[in-house]
């Protein structure tokens, strides 16, 4: 039982962590928390099942197509739900505009895809039991994303521009950085990260439209635990959440596991709004 808890806990935890990173990447460039984060994760599973399962595209090509499609949806979110709100005086309306965008994505999927969970094809055919690919693929994806982001932030000028915009948007603009293009790029990146989360966990969570709302919430918990904008915190928080949830699931059952997770979430939010690992320094002025 312990092995199952760890296998499924780490797998789900990695997915939650990736959705948490999706929230963070969007937030860093725009100061906007978007309800589309979980929906993009759901789309990763649906597009994967569509391309690889229904259309029979080879796995790697299907992955690239899925990431591209999710990145496109990410950019679309920025254009229709984020940019108009940032341009207006009432910036807090982003909560509503991204909620609307998320519902549009979810309903469209339910109508055009299916309201029932659809199977996701086996990708590599590797491993069985607790070493099945469905358990380690999400962990692998999470490690890849973390490595890729670290490389980007440390080694590329674009990555530094992202850091600059996240720290002081006004100074970055005054310096002549192409703020709007960078924001769109970060929404594309966020879409791809979420798409990868959905694709890698397809065999675990299936291609199901309701996963979006579920991932929205469980993906936000790591952000609350780890502190807004803190990717390492999100990974630690995500894995902790996955393990905790699965342990509770196996020992006290699903209902109390859900209630426990929610209670912990609320308590952490109320006791430490900055997250357990602290958020990066607040902007001056």
């Amino acid at each position: 039982m312990l092995a199952s808890i760890i296998a499924s806990g780490l797998a789900l935890g990695a997915v939650y962590a990736l959705i948490g990173i999706t929230y963070n990447v969007m937030f860093a460039a725009s100061r906007v928390m978007s309800f589309t984060a979980g929906q993009l994760g759901m789309l990763g599973g649906v597009f994967g099942a569509l391309f690889v399962g229904r259309l029979g595209v080879p796995g790697p090509v299907g992955l690239v197509l899925t990431l591209a499609a999710c990145a496109a949806v990410g950019v679309l979110t920025e254009i229709i739900a984020v940019r108009p709100v940032l341009a207006s005086l009432e910036k807090h309306l982003y909560v509503l505009s991204t909620l609307a965008a998320a519902l549009l994505i979810q309903q469209l999927t339910a109508i055009e895809w299916s309201t029932e969970p659809q199977p996701f094809p086996r990708l590599l055919g590797l491993g069985s039991g607790i070493l099945d690919e469905k358990f380690w693929l999400p962990v692998l994806a999470c490690a890849a994303v973390i490595g890729g982001l670290e490389w980007m932030y440390r080694r590329t000028l674009v990555g530094r521009a992202f850091i600059a915009i996240a720290e002081d948007n006004f100074a970055a603009r005054a310096l002549g950085l192409p703020e709007r293009r960078l924001r769109m790029a970060s929404f594309a990146l966020a879409g791809a990260v979420a798409g990868l989360a959905g694709f890698s966990s397809g065999q675990l969570l299936l291609a199901f439209f309701a996963n979006g709302a579920m991932l929205n919430f469980y993906g936000f918990v790591p952000v609350a635990l780890g502190g807004l904008g803190n990717n390492r915190g999100a990974v630690l928080g995500g894995l902790a959440l996955g393990l905790f949830q699965q342990a509770a699931n196996f020992t006290v059952g699903g209902v109390f596991a859900s209630v426990l997770v929610f209670t912990v979430f609320i308590v952490v939010l109320l006791a430490a709004p900055q997250g357990l690992f602290g958020a990066p320094a607040v902007r001056r002025v």
């Binding site: 229709i80 739900a81 505009s97 909620l99 609307a100 965008a101 519902l103 549009l104 309903q107 109508i111």
Partner: peptide, 8 residues
């Protein structure tokens, strides 16, 4: 879907 579009 329509409600959401209306909301937006």
């Amino acid at each position: 879907f329509l409600y959401a579009a209306l909301l937006l």
